[in-house]
């Protein structure tokens, strides 16, 4: 390789370089030097890269536990912006939604090689849908907190969140999301899928009017929160946050994929109890027709996520074997859509 062909050093491929760049960035932000400890990379998700690290600011004796999240150009839903996640977390810091405090963000790829944000590291572990079993008392307590957090999110004033409103109204909230995902699907699909095409047409014909325009998490489920000693410490993974119909998060949480045959929402709480507590705490009346619409919509979104994984792997952006494995789940998801629409 000649010098002209040499690729510039990329912090995404070199953790030592990433740590150096991060130290410089923190110094530029605070006006003091920082000592950044080694990174721990967390094997979560297919999109954003997540590192835990400790950092000590010059003159301070406290070592801070922090999280760095980077949206790489080869990620499942790339290209990314860190701003919506930063804005949502910042807006929710004083709310009843448990979230980590967020400190810095930038979409300037010259800094760390990708859009990024830095937040507080929260204690706890993320229970996942497909392993282990929950003791009844634990399940009921976590289930109630799971509902409280989403009810609190939907009760927030979305207009002051800093999230782009995109002229979203109660009338067009569903259409905005159908357009967003259909356009993404057109970029990702390697072939046509008649059941998916049928479902998208059905969604366009059956758009509900939202009860209000809320902040919508976009991936609210078991696996996307941290728990410690029976308490939810943080709701995570805000990369799909947007404004829209609050039923959207309900439809996603109600997916059978997260129930794992338990008959419970996310293996935590019966559907009727979820709805009753949610209505009580959010002040939003749950419309069964809207739940049905957003259940179909969520399956469409899940199918499109699988299609994104298929393309990502086919283009060689990842060799991660979880990608084609996800791709094999396209047919089961389309079959679930068929059953719902028959």
């Amino acid at each position: 390789m000649t010098p002209l062909e040499q690729k510039p050093p990329n912090p995404l491929d070199d953790e030592a370089l990433l740590r150096d760049r991060l130290s410089s960035y923190l110094q530029a932000q605070s006006g003091r030097s920082w000592t950044v400890g080694p990174f721990t990379r967390y094997a979560v998700g297919f999109s954003w890269i997540t590192y835990g690290f400790t950092a000590r600011e010059e003159g301070s004796s406290d070592e801070r536990g922090l999280i760095l999240r980077l949206g790489p150009p080869y990620g499942l839903f790339a290209p990314y912006s860190a701003h919506p996640q930063y804005a949502a977390l910042k807006a929710l810091e004083t709310s009843r939604v448990p979230v980590p405090r967020v400190f810095w963000w930038s979409d300037d790829v010259a800094i760390l090689g990708a859009p990024f944000f830095i937040s507080e590291k929260m204690p706890g572990v993320a229970p996942v849908p497909w392993s282990g079993s929950f003791e009844a008392g634990y399940r009921q307590s976590i289930g109630a907190q799971f509902v409280s957090a989403i009810a609190a999110l939907h009760a927030c004033d979305a207009r002051n969140s800093g999230i782009a409103q995109n002229d979203t109204t109660v009338e067009n909230a569903a259409l905005k999301q159908i357009d967003f995902w259909q356009e993404a699907g057109a970029r990702w699909a390697l072939k046509s899928h008649p059941m998916l095409h049928w479902a998208l047409r059905w969604l366009r014909r059956n758009q509900p009017v939202a009860p209000r325009v809320s902040l919508v998490h976009g991936d609210y489920r078991l696996g996307n929160f941290l728990e410690q000693d029976g308490r939810i410490t943080a709701i995570l993974d805000w990369e799909l946050v947007h404004v829209g119909d609050p039923h959207e998060d309900i439809g996603w949480a109600f997916l059978p994929q997260f129930a794992m045959g338990s008959g419970l929402i996310c293996r935590l709480i019966p559907r009727d109890e979820f709805i009753a507590q949610y209505e009580r705490e959010s002040g939003i009346k749950v419309n069964p027709a809207s739940v049905h619409f957003y259940l179909v919509f969520s399956l469409v979104k899940l199918a499109l996520t699988h299609i994104a994984a298929i393309r990502c792997f086919e283009e060689g952006r990842f060799n991660d074997m979880r990608m084609p494995a996800m791709g094999t789940q396209l047919a089961p998801v389309l079959r679930q859509i068929e059953k719902l629409l028959q």
Binding site: W130, S131, M195, R322, A325, T328, L334
Partner: peptide, 23 residues
């Protein structure tokens, strides 16, 4: 048509191993 296609896909797919893959 869609039902026949999807059933055929499902009948020719291996049992999922996502618990093993993630764990």
């Amino acid at each position: 048509y869609m039902n026949r296609q999807l059933k055929w896909e499902l009948s020719t797919s291996a049992k999922p191993m996502f618990a093993e893959i993630s764990g």
